[in-house]
Computed example of a mutant assay.
Amino acid sequence: MPHATPGPRSVERALEILDLVADADGPVAAKVLAGRLACSLSTVYHLLGPLTARGHLVRAEGGYAPGPRVAALHRSFQRHVGLAPGVGETLARLRRATGAEAYFTAYRDGLITVVDTTAPVTDAGHPFTPGPETRAHATAHGKALLAGVGRAARRRYLADHGMARFTDRTITAAERFEAEVRRVRAQGVAVSVGEAHPAYTCLAVALRGSGDGSVLHALSVSLPTAEFRRRQGGVRAALLEAAGAIQ
């Protein structure tokens, strides 16, 4: 059963339904939802009614799937975290120049989110996807963004989200991460070689955020480590050029 959070039980269950449907590979049957939530089928249908009426879900063959309202919420989120109109084209140009997938990431209110990417939505096997970033201490964009906040905020972030080990290269000690932050600030480019995924390297550059510093942005790329080692100079140069075009 999904992890429960404080609040009205009906609201919790409705959000759990949305999460379950969003994370599924295809439509999810009401009976499956009832089993996952450990509640009655009638309760699930009671919650599915307003979710489908408002367009958050749609009834599809075999169950329920994300609805059209999700796209509007995503666009609204992108707008609120500062995704400028030209960023999408910049990501596409960076993808063409490097052959690597490109990403635009934001830090806001103690959360790091991959806001946009060139990685195909159909590529379920790609290690970096849009949404909440749970491996910030191990990714280049996470390092670049955390290097842009104060030590207290950075320590608070790491305490809240943890420093899980994903590979034998992952930094899992706070003091060692502070040393990494100093390196990122000195070089202006964050690098993660096999820290979040054993076969991938990512590079990131911090961008200017909101005027009050409440939102920070980063531009990054990821590619197989073997490819990175062959042409890291060109990839780094293209990333810096693209970042300069956004700034």
Rank of each mutant, 00 (worst) to 15 (best):
R169A: 07
T5C: 01
L51N: 06
V44D: 04
R151T: 03
S220F: 01
R182N: 10
C39L: 03
R75S: 13
G244V: 14
E133D: 14
Y157E: 00
T43L: 08
I171M: 05
A106Q: 12
G67I: 00
C39N: 06
P27K: 08
A147I: 00
E12W: 09
G49V: 01
G211W: 08
D23Q: 12
L51W: 05
H161W: 14
A71N: 02
F104K: 03
T139D: 07
R183H: 05
H80F: 09
V191I: 10
L33G: 13
P132W: 03
R156V: 00
L216G: 06
A242N: 01
A144C: 06
A14W: 01
Q247V: 02
A199P: 15
Y103N: 08
H217W: 14
H3F: 00
R229G: 01
T172N: 10
Q187S: 11
C39K: 07
S210C: 07
V235D: 00
G62T: 00
L37Y: 10
D123V: 01
A72T: 14
A186P: 09
V44M: 03
T52L: 06
I112H: 08
V184K: 04
L33A: 04
G211C: 11
T98A: 00
F166A: 01
V149N: 05
R231D: 06
P224A: 02
E178G: 02
E89Y: 11
L18Y: 03
A196Q: 00
L240P: 13
R230I: 09
V44N: 02
L145C: 06
A60E: 06
A173I: 05
G82K: 07
L158V: 04
L57K: 07
S10K: 05
R169W: 03
A226C: 05
D123Y: 07
T172H: 03
G35T: 08
F77E: 12
R75L: 12
A14D: 10
